[in-house]
Structure formats: structure tokens, C-alpha cells
Design a protein around this nucleic acid. Structure first.
Lengths: 279, 279
DNA sequence: GTAAACCCTATTGTAACAATAGGGTCAAGA
DNA sequence: TCTTGACCCTATTGTTACAATAGGGTTTAC
């Protein structure tokens, strides 16, 4: 009762599509045991299910059809074992990539949710911020010139540095600018430095600084053109409340919205000045 | 100093290829701010880096270019937040898939390594095997007939059942046949049932059985045609050593090698009979 | 003025099929 | 024996995000 199995039956029997079998035949992965020379009808034997099983099995393990073809040329268990281990390694890499992606997404999601709840745009707050680590880059030009142009160029340079140091791509959105304490104490909003927030474990690289945990006065700002005014609001507040500037001024980009029509950045920033009580 | 940036410079500035920029222009994702109407040369403005940043950012989060296009039509933070959360969900799924793949690979790898170390093909051993759970399927026909043909058909049926019960694909390679105790005690190798090893948490489904932890006499067998002889070897051993058959005979497929040329299954099986001391 | 470096469009290729179109074949019932 | 519906064939196009050409024009620096 050795049955000739038509392509449709073979497909149903193995839960694959007819096209798939066509395809496997075409690339020489699995050709029917008999092909009618007149009609070109394909007929499979039940034993070919074993091959198909094997193909499906390898496919499930993430091998490409080309790789599966190679499998069939390597019959020794040693080569196969090696290929399997390599594949495991490859999957580990993919998992890492996905983990990074997910982390990035989660940060973005959190930021957008924060954004939607910001009721306090332009309102001064005081709170203690935790320790953060940043990678600073000095572009040697004042980023507050030229309507963001200089900023853009320096941002590119920062990213190239980050690529050199092999920072994960996910850092690329956690940026900001820093104006040193001396400047801000003179009420000058001038800066040549921008930074990227990095994870705690980076340390040996030159340019890494620590922002200690401490009290800050902060304000949310949703337009670049407002930054100057808002920064001065912070300074005014500090003076009025007899506080003292205790460190560098930070303008941290919280979130970036796609502003297609204007073709210009639209971002939410959190302006921050560390303070201590004036004794 | 609003500079016209040529495509090559833009590419270098942003670490992308010229082709990529061509492509983005083509699909309307990012068109240069100025195109020379005579030469068709593309010139970008520095501010378009912001858009490119955003594109790269979303790409990094795993969105397709089409999806990114949609992002630009949805400017409200709420829609974006929703898209982000959906993407997180999608990544979770992919991670699960990868985890399954990896598990399958690890089992396969382990099996092949075991195989390479099998020195004891055809040699009887006694050892205690841990508890296992199996899903049995009765094909109503003796699988030892017709040179594997019946087996193939019943194997397809088992898999269809497994699909219905939504077993993970990784189970598909952990199969075997079972010959009930009454049969094997009569020295009859006759079986209509095959099984699939399943994880411990499956229980409510009909057809699930438990193989208790206990002592077995076992033998490795590398050819279907040898199974009968080897099974009788086990029975002989049991009788000679005054043991008693304590349960069903199991033929477990340990590993399946690709046997391209012969177009027939070539597998390593571990034949097992549970025993107890004859008091 | 010239050559190198740059830019353009258009085509082909990648992976693993799905979805057609347009036509021939098989099997079962009348 | 005929018919009809179910089945099969080949060939083409489409999918993603570009890379890699080919064949030709342009810019820029010396």
C-alpha cells in the first residue's frame, strides 16, 4: 500500500502550504519522490515526511533554508552539534538586542506617560534627585547660538564619541546640555558642553561625571525659545528664597515629540539647578 | 550660515548610508529640504537631523518604516504612547519565541552530545529514571507494520492532536512508542500508541499519563530494524536476572539524524522496560 | 582644464514564501 | 462517457529595508 501522495495531501498531512512544498522543491530542499513526466504533477512518499519533519524542526530552531540545505550535506554529528551551538549563541545575541530594544521602549513609554501628566509646565518645584552619571562632551562652541544649528552639530559629535565608546544606542535619546556653575552664577546662559545619561557601571572613560544626589529646583519647559526665560525664573527663585547655587545648571531632554510639519525639534526639557541652604 | 548639506555629508554626519537616504526620500519618510530642479541633487538642512534622529530612534525600537511614517501623522502623545506599549508587547512575544527556540536548540545540542558519547549501543544498562509525563495517542493500528508507514501516519495524527492542544512545537521531537505491559509480558511487540514527552505542568488534558520514577533496564538502539531484537534482549535479561516487568515498554526517540540519501528516518532510540525485584 | 570625488536614476538581489493569473488534470457522479 | 468541481501546473508579482551594481552627469579642488 505504498501510496503516492499528491502535493495537496502532503501539505495537509504536514500542516504546511502547497506553496511551501513548491518552494522547497524549487530550491532543492525536498523534491517529490516521483514527478509525472507528462503532467509534472508531484507525488510524495510517506517516508518523505521524515525529511519534512527535520526541515520544520530546524526551521523552528531559527535556521535558514540555505543552512538547512547545508545540514543535509553534513551528516556527522560533530558538525551538526557545532552548528547547533553556534545557533544558540546567535539567539543569545538576538535576545540581548531585544532586551535593549525593550528597555528603550519602556523608557520612551514612561517618558510619554510622564509628559501627558505634566501639569506643571513652567512651574518651579523643589525636589531631591538621585545620583546620575553623565558623559560630557565639549563642542567648543556655544550651543545657544544659531538657533539650534550649533547644537545639532555638537550633538552629532557627541554621538560619534558615543559610538567610539560603544555606548548602547538607547542612550542616544537621553541627552542634555550643561552650563557650569560659574556661568550660571553670573546669570550667563552659555555652554559648549552637552551630555548623555549613562548607566552606573560606566566609569573609567574620560568625560564621565557624577551628578550627586541632592536637592534641585526644577522647571519643565516645552520650547527651546523659552529656556532662557525659565532658567532665569529658577535663578530668581533661588535668590528670593535665599538659597545658593550648589552646582552646574542642567537642561535635560525628557522627551522628543515628532514635529514633522515644522521640521524642527520639539522637546520637553527639565531645567535643573542644584541648591543648598544659604547659611 | 545655514548650510546646504549634500547627501554624502548628511550620510556621514548621521552614520547612515547614501542609499538609506535615497530610500527614505523615495518612500516619503524624509525628503531633502531642497532639491536642485536641474541636477536633482539633494540638499538637506541641519535641522532635518532631528527627523533622522527620530527615525533612527524608532527603528531601533523595532518599528518598520511604514509604522514610522504613521508616527509622523499621529502627533498626539496618547496615540504614540499606545503604539509604544503595543510594541513592547510584540517584543515580549518575540522574546518568548526565542526562549522556546533556545530551549529546543539546547535539548538538541545535548542529545547530539549524548549521542557522540554513546559507547553502549546495544548494551543493557540498569538505572533509575526520573518521573516523566507523556501525552499518548492511540492510532488504532499496529505501528510495527508496513515498514514505518503506519508509524508515519500515526505520528502525523499525534502532531495534529498536539496542535489542537496547543503544545509548543518543541515537543514535536520528543516522541516515542509505548507497548503495554500485558503485551510485552507475552513477548509481543505490538503497539498502536505513540506519545510525546510533555512538561510537568500539563495535566488536565485527556491522554496525559505519568511514567513514575523507578528502575528501568535500558538499551540504546540505532536502527528501527534492530528494535525487535534489542527489545527481546531486554526481556531475556529480565528473566535471567529474576526481575519482573513493572510497567509498559517504552521506545523513546533520543535523536534524529538527517539521512538525506536514504530518505528514511535514522534515529537513535532508547528502549526501556521498568522492572522490580521478583520476591 | 582636468581628474577625482561626488551625485543622479534605474535595476537587481536578498528570505521565505503568499497571492494571484491563466491554464491543464483528476476523480466521482449522472 | 461526459461533466463538473476540486485539484494541479508554471510564472509573475509582492513583501522589507536597503546593498550593490551599471551607466551616466556634476562639482570641486588643483
Amino acid at each position: 500500500m505504498l501510496e503516492k501522495i499528491s502535493i495537496g495531501k502532503m501539505a495537509k498531512l504536514n500542516n504546511v502550504s502547497v506553496q511551501t512544498l513548491h518552494h522547497y522543491d524549487k530550491i532543492g530542499l525536498l523534491s517529490p519522490s516521483y514527478t509525472d513526466p507528462i503532467t509534472n504533477y508531484r507525488y510524495y512518499s510517506i517516508k518523505q515526511c521524515a525529511s519534512l519533519d527535520f526541515i520544520k524542526y530546524l526551521k523552528y530552531m531559527g535556521f535558514t533554508l540555505q543552512e538547512i540545505l547545508e545540514f543535509f550535506t553534513k551528516e556527522d554529528a560533530k558538525s551538526i552539534s557545532k552548528l547547533l551551538d553556534e545557533q544558540i549563541h546567535l539567539i543569545d545575541q538576538k535576545m540581548n538586542d531585544l532586551t535593549q530594544m525593550k528597555r528603550t521602549l519602556e523608557v520612551a513609554s514612561k517618558n510619554y506617560k510622564t509628559y501627558m501628566q505634566i501639569q506643571n509646565m513652567g512651574i518651579i518645584e523643589r525636589n531631591v534627585l538621585p545620583e546620575r552619571k553623565i558623559y560630557c562632551y565639549d563642542g567648543k562652541k556655544n550651543i545657544y547660538n544659531d538657533h539650534l544649528e550649533t547644537y545639532e552639530y555638537i550633538l552629532r559629535e557627541l554621538r560619534n564619541q558615543a559610538l567610539i565608546h560603544q555606548f548602547p544606542t538607547s542612550y542616544f535619546c537621553n541627552v542634555g546640555s550643561i552650563t557650569r556653575m560659574e556661568m550660571i552664577k553670573q546669570r550667563k546662559l552659555t555652554s559648549t558642553e552637552i551630555f548623555m545619561l549613562v548607566d552606573a557601571h560606566f566609569s573609567e572613560i574620560q568625560g564621565i561625571e557624577i551628578l550627586p544626589a541632592q536637592e534641585y529646583v526644577t522647571i519643565y519647559c516645552d520650547q527651546f525659545s523659552n529656556e532662557r526665560d525659565y532658567a532665569f525664573k529658577l535663578i530668581d527663585y533661588i535668590e528670593e528664597h535665599k538659597l545658593e547655587i550648589a552646582g552646574d545648571y542642567i537642561c535635560e531632554v525628557i522627551i522628543e515629540l515628532p514635529e514633522w510639519t515644522h521640521a524642527e525639534r520639539h522637546m520637553i526639557m527639565k531645567l535643573q539647578i542644584p541648591v543648598k541652604k544659604n547659611l
